[in-house]
Nucleic acid binder design. Structure first.
Lengths: 202, 202
DNA sequence: TCATAGAACTACACTAAGTGTAAAAATGCA
DNA sequence: TGCATTTTTACACTTAGTGTAGTTCTATGA
């Protein structure tokens, strides 16, 4: 077995806490739910919550770092001679694929929807999400400079990254605000991406 | 007198708290400084701090809402027949002018520098700054739809806005990270803006 | 000048997030 | 079984932030 009982139980506890948290947040609202209540509902000590998650918000952003790492790998794996627009497009496709896969693999679609609603409406969670996107942006820019040493300097790379992610994010959020259905949502995100990309290809 | 004594004293207290806060943050660091310490140093009750500022972070973002409002006015005041790139350029010029004026009008340049360093390095403050930019973005996009009813829909406007602000922000932060001097910093910001704008003009 | 309404400030009690520590319980391994 | 390591727990503590009621200061009208 590649996972010991200890590791398995730890993961279980972590997962139990996270799912309990989303459920309670959905029922009572984010601010109205205390960490103590989550811990009690999951039948663990309050401290155990903070042993697994550095803050109350973090319980909602468990997989984000890993998902971001995947995008960075795409950038780092620039193919020989691959143009910047092509590489960014590959990254975007990967982002999209992950996003859709997440929706499918989710064992509980209702939780997924609750999650989206929370992150879109609760200021503290929005700020957290923005901050993490911001960190991703810096890492992408840094990696871009490495794989395009002759074409990109740090400022240019940061501008490109900010432009692309900003456009995609803006379009996605606007689409959600409008309550657009699934398929139009993907189309809107694509529009944002294409718009930003046009600035690169001269 | 257009300002009563009451209003004047209130403003004085508010200003005293804000300046004391920046000074202490600069000396001891943001997290290491408690609101109680700030209040004590400014010789007011802790509650008075929260009467003026909703949170510890907010003491560092006093003028932001007003400055953002100015940018929105530029957008709302689209001149007859003015193209989107022209209007955005006017907004950018305004942003720049405000930014430079702020640096000049600052009675204490050292505090200004401390302020910049804090906002750039402390996670909680970065997140707050990002969140406020995000809110500005939404308002700009909303206003753009109003002044370009035939050319822009909500998704397009959000994409444009996100692209431009994202690029400018990315370039500016990268420039600061590099420690570029004043003049190169402005040039870098401009590069970001121009890059994003290219995506619009065809 | 005095009286009074309202605004700002203060004192105080309280909730909740988050940290540090040491002990207890569970697990891995010899 | 015995021992080391990891996870969980209990507990005490700090700090951000809220609610309330009372006090002080300011504006204003008689």
């Amino acid at each position: 077995m590649d996972e010991s009982r200890r590791e398995r139980k730890k993961r279980q506890t972590r997962r139990l806490i996270a799912e309990t948290a989303i459920r309670l947040f959905g029922e009572r609202g984010y601010e109205q739910t205390t960490v103590a209540e989550i811990a009690a509902a999951a039948d663990v000590a309050t401290k155990t919550f903070f042993n697994h998650f550095p803050s109350k918000e973090d319980v909602l952003f468990t997989g984000t770092r890993e998902r971001n790492a995947v995008l960075l790998e795409v950038i780092a794996g620039r193919r020989p001679g691959e143009s910047l627009p092509d590489l960014l497009t590959r990254m975007y496709e990967k982002l999209l694929a992950d996003y859709r896969a997440e929706g499918v693999e989710a064992e509980d679609p209702a939780l997924m929807k609750t999650y989206t609603r929370l992150v879109m409406t609760v200021p503290a969670l929005q700020a957290k999400a923005l901050y993490m996107t911001f960190e991703l942006q810096k890492e992408i820019a840094e990696t871009l400079v490495k794989v395009y040493p002759d074409e990109l300097d740090p400022v240019g790379a940061a501008a490109v990254t900010g432009s692309v992610l900003g456009a995609v994010q803006g379009a996605a959020l606007a689409s959600m605000d409008l309550g657009e259905p699934e398929e139009r949502f993907w189309a809107s995100m694509r529009r944002g991406f294409d718009l930003a990309l046009r600035g690169l290809s001269r």
